[in-house]
Write a protein that binds this DNA or RNA. Structure first.
Lengths: 347, 347
DNA sequence: ACAAAAAATGTGTTCGAACACATTGATGTT
DNA sequence: AACATCAATGTGTTCGAACACATTTTTTGT
């Protein structure tokens, strides 16, 4: 199982390593005879270039900028930083530098400002978390014009300018929630779908989850759930939810399409007799607290940490080892309950 | 953000690269003055050696042998091969060769024979799937005596001779099943725990799962489930299960601790009125078929493919880049239903 | 047939770390 | 003073691929 080098092949073919190199890289300037001889040999021994030697030659330092919402404003984004940090540690000695930039996810201006700053630096790639739908499309165009590779996570923009998207199938995500709900909420009951955020949010992921949720329940026979949808900001939640829970024909299940499910659980906790089942998103500490108590029944893990990590990893492997980047990478959608959350938080 | 090389540091410290090298590798033969100057400089600029250059120098070809049950006899083991193949593709151009060896998981002799063959080759590392508990301990001792690194997956042997174990917390795995069962089976009902395999199996993972399952149910108040445990080989299943299902006070939930859950579902299917909930293990095609139909309610994914892949990856990164191997790596325990299995099978 | 142009082929250097080997300088011994 | 000893330091080569540059061979035009 010898490892063949260019030199070995040159000797075997009776030519110089320069010629072998020209054949491998299709640089031309090679006679038909030499071309055939070397090509045949390369195939025969299944030549695999030593990627370590190859990338050693390439001494360039690659620069990746990460642009994401400030986790101090919304803690949901903290795992992204952790994922990025893991990637930094893994690749810093390979000549890849990564800088993070934060914007306020309630303020499109800050988003534009940060992107301008990044664009000035002309990094090799940017990783954008597109919470602002149409604004993101705008800035991505600018990056494309400047040959900056654009990667996105979390929210599929369906855009040509994006090199790779790492995320989840959000419609399917909604279907999963519906299937779980079906298993734990008796038929004919009322189920609430709640879109909940601190601020107005023009990203579409909540709508896609709702679509999947309804879609699943529509196609099972005799389900007869009564569905109601509310789009709320956190400030309004308390009043609205109390209204609903105090009505006579109360609800039996709540599907919260965001990571803010803990604030729903906090209120519902006070109505233990209603035996309301709650399903929501993401492994925030606050969510896990209620999951352990049994106030939240299931959490669906969007795995932002792994999304960010994987995205950076793909870029790094592309720069360093010429590895192809898949246009889209859909991560598994983890179902989390009070017993298995540990495996997802400690990774 | 310049990347400093040994040469840079030599120049800055006013010494030769040889001296810097001696400091970095603590080879001695360096004056106190030079040592201090270089050490200080290294810290100041947080010197990170270029791992690519370092490993280029190391031209050794590492050899890893994988020893696992023959997937043609038990298809559960096919994903391991897929995981290993992924790893092969990823590392073949880095000077890592991997050979697979299969044994019959019903025949300890074949296990010994294969291990003998592997030992003769003196590979750098072996990846063993220890389905035979005490036999595995025996062969691992031999590998240790010959300085062959031993990695294991799937079944924690709690043994000193093992360099790394990649797997899951099996007790917790049982608890997860119990938590799910609790959510979908009404209280006071009968629940069956079934250990099911084609052959007699002396590995302990089934016992650990049972322990976790019982442990969880014991500690919830008023659960009052009646638990019964059966250890069966597939040949005896049909008769035994029919017996049980035809009794008056029939069971409402079945927890199968192995991947053979499909053969339970196949029988239970014929008793739709009993509305029996089934939870089992692993994403075999046959299991997913029943999961989709609703005959199986949940599958717990042990992710053998990722276990194998990760194990090889860790070894490779250790050989190539001196990366530390964690003694134990516990993978998350995935809860799979009819809607999210796709994300786990297509990876 | 011969020079010039073009094509084919060969040679040598580089990347950064590792290490074998060579050189320097200080100290001690006779 | 001459020489051996030994610690400290410096130099040069290697790993495999990539590519610039040098050299040889072939083709073309007159």
């Amino acid at each position: 199982m010898k490892k063949y080098t260019i030199k070995d092949i040159a000797k075997l073919a009776g030519v110089s390593k320069g010629t072998v190199d020209r054949v491998i890289h299709k640089r031309g300037k090679v006679s038909q005879a030499a071309l055939e001889k070397v090509t045949k040999l390369l195939e025969e021994i299944d030549y695999q270039p030593n990627l370590i030697a190859r990338s050693l030659k390439n001494t360039k330092n690659y620069h990746i900028c990460v642009i994401q919402p400030n986790p101090e404003i919304d803690p949901y984004w903290q795992p992204c930083i952790d994922g990025v940090n893991d990637a930094i540690n893994e690749y810093k000695s390979f000549g890849i530098t990564i800088d993070s930039y934060f914007f306020n996810h309630a303020d499109t201006d800050s988003f534009f400002k940060v992107n301008e700053e990044v664009l000035k630096q002309l990094p090799d790639a940017v990783l954008i978390t597109p919470v602002f739908h149409k604004e993101s499309i705008e800035v991505i165009k600018k990056y494309n014009a400047n040959n900056v590779i654009v990667s996105t996570i979390n929210d599929p923009l369906e855009l040509n300018g994006i090199t790779n998207y790492v995320g989840q199938d959000l419609i399917q995500s909604g279907r999963i929630a519906a299937r779980l709900m079906e298993m734990i909420v008796p038929r004919n009951r009322d189920i609430l779908i709640v879109h909940l955020d601190e601020v107005f949010n023009n990203s579409i992921h909540m709508q896609l989850k709702e679509k999947g949720f309804k879609n699943y329940l529509k196609h099972i026979s005799n389900s007869n759930y009564k569905l109601k949808t509310y789009s709320l900001q956190q400030a309004d939640l308390d009043e609205k939810l109390h209204d609903l829970l105090n009505k006579p024909n109360a609800i039996s299940g709540i599907f919260v399409t965001t990571s803010k499910v803990y604030s729903v659980a906090k209120i519902v906790e006070n109505f233990p007799d209603l035996n309301i089942k709650i399903i929501g998103y993401d492994l925030l500490d606050e969510n896990i607290k209620y999951l352990k108590k049994g106030a939240i029944d299931f959490l669906i893990n969007q795995n932002p940490k792994h999304q960010a990590y994987l995205c950076i990893t793909q870029l790094a492997e592309y720069f360093l080892f010429d590895k192809k980047i898949p246009k889209q990478k859909l991560l598994p959608i983890d179902i989390v309950n009070s017993e298995n959350f540990d495996g997802y938080t400690n990774n």
